[in-house]
Design a protein around this nucleic acid. Structure first.
Lengths: 262, 262
DNA sequence: CTTGCCCACTCGTCTATACGAGTATGCCTC
DNA sequence: GAGGCATACTCGTATAGACGAGTGGGCAAG
């Protein structure tokens, strides 16, 4: 068993009221914050920490679980515990739905990802007709049946976002929108061709911890929240023509918005 | 020891590959989702779960810690484990910085909270001059020294948000902005009086798990992420006149934005 | 009736141990 | 050299027990 690099970690204060596992977590957190363990670096193994601090393994594991739920580290079975690297962040600009971004052939996601040097992918594409949930129905203006378009977005093989678009069936049925691939410019371009000139979008942003199925779909590490975004698109007649419900890995996104001062 | 209400929880599947503590967590989660345990309700005690499932206490605790890190339940020392109630959510509207909201005497936070029937409070007010961090400096356009205004917002005694405003010292020094109470309409009203007519705001939204000091300041339950919002205010000459860095309890907020379609 | 204490119940912390399972390395065999 | 296997090291799961500390209700003393 290799000894710990000296000076990286201190000792416990037995007179402190603070629980031992918290003291250990504090020391590891500080070491990470100060760069003594860099991004992606391996922390000392549980056995090494057990020896160094003279505590039982469960206490050490408790400390590590604290850091894990803070999103600072993640453990890999058989390999060790590592300082979680920050993935490249995707910035959603406030003009991302401007019409000029729709005029080109590819989808916004693809264009932007390639510009950033990433390999974009879309999978789990599924288009079907459904009964609207009460929430979706309310947002679309008391629509009963909707077309639901589900898909998952990946960058360089890593899932970053799932999205479901809901459109009133009377608008979308038997149009290219009901096709898996709606064609250049995406469904917004198709909506405008169908006479629904888009006026503006409303977005609602929430953050929360993921449900188990979201952990799976986005391959989320523990301690990573999700951003839950619900966007409603309105045409120039004031009608809600689409609701898009998206769940994003919070560590892969930053959302940018512009607000008027008057 | 009271027996568990029959039918609320099932039994384990010993043939399953799924770890026992996960199976228990799954059952509890399902019971909560289906409303068999309502908001604020007390879950069976660790001892009861230990008996019911015939496993050791640590295994039960492990299950509960899963639910806790999902934000579903929170434990109270000496009392039990409870289904976490969803606090009333504060909605930040997309027009929240419209000039008309500034014309009145009180701060936006106060007005809005009272309209919603809550008791607003602001504390930890602290105003001082500081060296700008590289990030703040970049956002303000290579400003070296700034005026920092720190404060914490509470609703009905519960902290919901901390905020720090940074203003270039050459704008804010020796003005009402440097006073703890900047007067009616807040610092934005003062900026306009000083000749900095506001043009627009840019906001960046991130979500992440809170650092320990944020847990303390916002009294966050475990499993509750924070929304990290950085807003930059620009005047009509294109100059960045303020950066506001705010951290919000994610379970108390939903942010609303409006995006143009062109 | 009120006060104060005791006690039962609750979760929090910690130890010690055992075995399982994934990973990586190096050696041995072919 | 290539392949496969043994092995050591890693984290994952689970048990059993002990004591501490916060909460709340009931009982006894005043």
């Amino acid at each position: 068993m290799a000894a710990l690099p000296s000076g990286v970690l201190g000792t416990l204060d037995p007179t402190s009221d603070r629980a031992v596992f918290r003291q250990i977590a504090d020391q590891l957190r500080e070491a990470i914050d100060k760069g003594r363990f860099k991004e992606g670096a391996k922390l000392p193994s549980e056995a090494e920490l057990t020896d160094h601090f003279g505590v039982s393994r469960m206490t050490v594991r408790n400390s590590l679980s604290v850091l894990q739920s803070e999103g600072l580290v993640s453990s890999e079975h058989g390999r060790g515990v590592f300082v979680r690297p920050r993935p490249p962040v995707r910035r959603l600009a406030s003009d991302r739905f401007a019409r000029r971004h729709r005029e080109q052939g590819k989808s916004a996601f693809t264009v932007e990802a390639e510009a950033a040097g990433s390999r974009p992918e879309v999978d789990s594409l599924e288009v079907r007709e459904e009964r609207a949930t009460p929430d979706i129905s309310a947002r679309l203006g008391s629509v009963r049946k909707v077309l639901a378009r589900r898909r998952r977005y990946l960058l360089d093989g890593k899932p970053v976002e799932t999205a479901v678009s809901y459109l009133p069936l009377d608008i979308a049925r038997d149009t290219p929108i009901a096709e898996p691939n709606p064609g250049p410019g995406g469904i917004y371009a198709r909506l405008e061709e169908l006479g629904h000139q888009l006026d503006h979008f409303e977005e609602e942003v929430r953050a929360r911890m993921p449900a188990p199925d979201e952990v799976k779909a986005l391959r989320l590490a523990s301690g990573v929240p999700v951003i839950h975004l619900v966007r409603t698109a309105y045409d120039t007649e004031g009608r809600a023509v689409e609701v898009c419900d998206t769940v994003m890995s919070a560590d892969a996104y930053v959302l940018a918005y512009q607000l008027p001062a008057n």
